[in-house]
Design a protein around this nucleic acid. Structure first.
Length: 585
RNA sequence: GCGCCCGUAGCUCAGUUGGAUAGAGCACCGACCUUCUAAGUCGGGGGUCGCAGGUUCGAUUCCUGCCGGGCGCGCCA
């Protein structure tokens, strides 16, 4: 149950009743009425701004309106008290049994606790990673991969029909460079000595395997042919090899795409012409001359007539070129075609997870999507800021040009998949993130992955011990569901229950905002609540979970512990992390 | 020059889409281990939410202008 949505309905019903009774005018706009958690727990369990946002329209003072609402709210069986505070807030306190019933929600729903059908099966396309197929995935790609995948998971949990998609940029000049670089390695594999990789080629060692594989397949077949003969074949071969490696790296991270879309295939199928025809039909194309960009030195700037898209009509700063001097389409034109293609596949909601260097591209693609779909599709672009790789606080040196860089695979091998995925979500996506190899594997409170996993492991340890001391039957669903949860009455226990009750709303909010980092922060808070409760048992033996002398209380506490396991495990899985059974090393 | 992102405790960052006395962790000071894992917990000090206006019952949040940091800026992808 999403408690905020639940009580939002309660408040709205009260307002309707009040309108029927003539206390307030009928037909007030209730859109801004909100029920949320107060910042300070001391203020109560929930707060509503109803009296404040409706006061003006109702022609009343906020507090007077609140006075009318309070008795009706208090009459609700799940509400203990309602009091007016500050400028007109109504603070609600809920019955303890309401909170304890949420524990039953967790136990009954298990792994699906927090899931909802809010998305109503709406189709969403999440495009992420989309790294150029010219080399292995790097540390930088890891962030986009994790963010995109977690967003997709959250959308699935909230009842959306999600497509995880990778766009292969296999149509530009960079894949020709790849092909030529692979050809060098091919000759090398045939026994030639390549002293040094010339500039303008990719120097990476990973291309040796591509050269060898081609020899294995075709022998010396291509060696003495002119470039025009071998280029298309080598390009296709090398791209396919790169994509295999990329897919396998993504697999190591636990990311599985539903679809790989090839830019080249799209272009060859005439998708660009179709998309541009769509824009033409709406009168959004013209031929003109752009002003030279200011503040940047361009020695070779020559004013030139070119095909332009009126992106300024949709909020962009300048109109954007669609055709190059040689008549071929720009990357932007292909991008429009690709987004139109996604829309044509019946995805009205598009999410693009891209690197921060795409900042300047947001306005134009947003404009293009609106234009080419006639406003029927929207795109949300999540820019992921840099990941700074550190070792004990010192930057790890990387240079893609010289071919030395830290790959995604290196990082996973070093710290594990779960750590990579969790740490990548410990900042908002638009905030730069430090990834310190020493810190992320440290077993301390300073390391959020460890802290959360430790809470889960502690819970599992208690459950294992319970099964030993009593019997496995004590942990059976029917045993835990029959627990007398009224025995859970300490502030720490109730705090933990309240936090777990918030989980469905956290999932819903994170999914709606496309902000998976909220899950990581929530899990940290939940873990803290649990560690607090745990340590109370240190001071006072009667506060431990397992009590020989009191079986009924033990069962109630085991129900609580099982719920914590369920919520933490569910939360970790939502961001693609496997919960740990134990951390003792 | 223009655009986008960011500016919150000494440091690293949250802040539930505009709410009340702005929160965590680290660092610092002081407590707690014959224990279901002390790899942890509790307490304390610490703030002009970059600055100045505006919008309104109410602004860290929205708008405008400055200041500071990052990224990007025709025919590359």
């Amino acid at each position: 149950m999403n408690i905020y949505k639940h009580f939002s309905v309660v408040v709205r019903n009260v307002l309707q009743d009040l309108a029927v009774a003539g206390g307030i005018p009928a037909g007030l706009d209730l859109a801004r009425v909100a029920v949320e958690a107060p910042r300070e727990a001391a203020h109560g369990d929930l707060a509503t701004n109803a009296a404040m946002v409706l006061a003006k329209a109702a022609g009343m003072k906020p507090r007077d309106l609140a006075e009318l609402l309070v008795p009706r709210l208090t009459a609700h069986p799940e509400i203990v008290s309602a009091e007016i505070a500050g400028p007109g807030f109504i603070n609600l306190r809920l019955t303890e049994s309401f909170w304890r019933d949420r524990l039953k929600d967790v136990l009954v729903e298990g792994a699906t606790y927090g899931d909802s059908d809010e998305g109503k099966g709406r189709r969403v396309n999440v495009e992420y990673v989309s790294a150029n197929p010219t080399g292995p995935l790097t540390a930088g790609h890891a962030r986009g991969a994790v963010v995109g995948d977690a967003i997709a998971n959250l959308l699935v949990k909230t009842g959306h029909d999600v497509c995880r998609e990778y766009y292969i940029n296999d149509a530009g000049a960079q894949v020709d460079v790849l092909a030529r670089s692979a050809f060098l390695r091919y000759r090398e594999a045939l026994g030639e000595t390549i002293a040094e990789i010339p500039s303008g080629f990719y120097p990476g060692e990973y291309l040796k395997a591509v050269g060898q594989a081609l020899v294995a397949r075709d022998g010396a077949k291509w060696r003495d042919l002119p470039e025009s003969e071998w280029l298309p074949e080598l390009r296709a071969f090398a791209v396919a090899r790169m994509m295999e490696s990329i897919e396998s790296d993504l697999g190591a991270l636990g990311v599985k795409m539903d679809r790989f879309s090839s830019e080249r295939a799209l272009v060859e199928a005439g998708a660009v012409e179709r998309a541009l025809a769509e824009l033409e039909r709406r009168g959004l194309l013209y031929t003109g001359i752009l002003e030279p960009p200011k503040g940047k030195q361009l020695d070779d700037w020559e004013p030139r007539e070119q095909l332009l898209f009126r992106s300024t009509e949709f909020g962009d700063d300048v109109d954007r070129p669609l055709a190059k001097a040689d008549g071929s389409f720009t990357y932007f034109a292909n991008d429009i075609a690709y987004h139109f293609d996604k829309f044509s596949r019946h995805y009205p909601l598009l999410i693009d997870v891209v690197g921060a260097d795409h900042g300047g591209w947001v306005k134009r693609i947003t404009a293009a999507v609106t234009a080419v779909t006639d406003g029927k599709a929207s795109v949300d672009i999540k820019l992921c800021q840099l990941v700074n790789l550190l070792q004990e606080g010192q930057p790890v040196k990387m240079s893609k040009r010289s071919g030395t860089f830290v790959t995604l695979r290196d990082i996973i091998d070093e710290v594990g998949r779960g750590v990579v995925r969790f740490i990548m979500l410990t900042r908002r996506n638009d905030q730069a993130l430090d990834f310190d190899f020493a810190k992320v594997t440290e077993q301390s409170k300073d390391n959020p992955v460890f802290y959360v996993q430790y809470a889960h492991a502690r819970c599992r340890s208690v459950l294992r011990l319970a099964a030993e001391q009593y019997s496995a039957a004590i942990l059976a669903p029917e045993s835990l569901l029959a627990a007398d949860t009224n025995r859970l009455d300490s502030p720490e226990e109730l705090d933990l229950i309240r936090r777990m009750a918030a989980w469905p709303a956290v999932v819903s909010g994170a999914a709606e905002a496309h902000e998976p980092h909220r899950i990581a922060f929530y899990l940290y808070d939940l873990a803290a609540s649990f560690h607090q409760l745990w340590s109370r048992g240190k001071d006072n033996a009667t506060l431990r979970f397992l009590l020989e002398s009191d079986r009924s209380l033990t069962i109630a506490r085991l129900a609580l512990v099982q719920s914590v396991v369920t919520v933490i495990a569910g939360g970790l899985r939502a961001i693609g992390v496997e919960p740990a059974e134990e951390l003792r090393s």
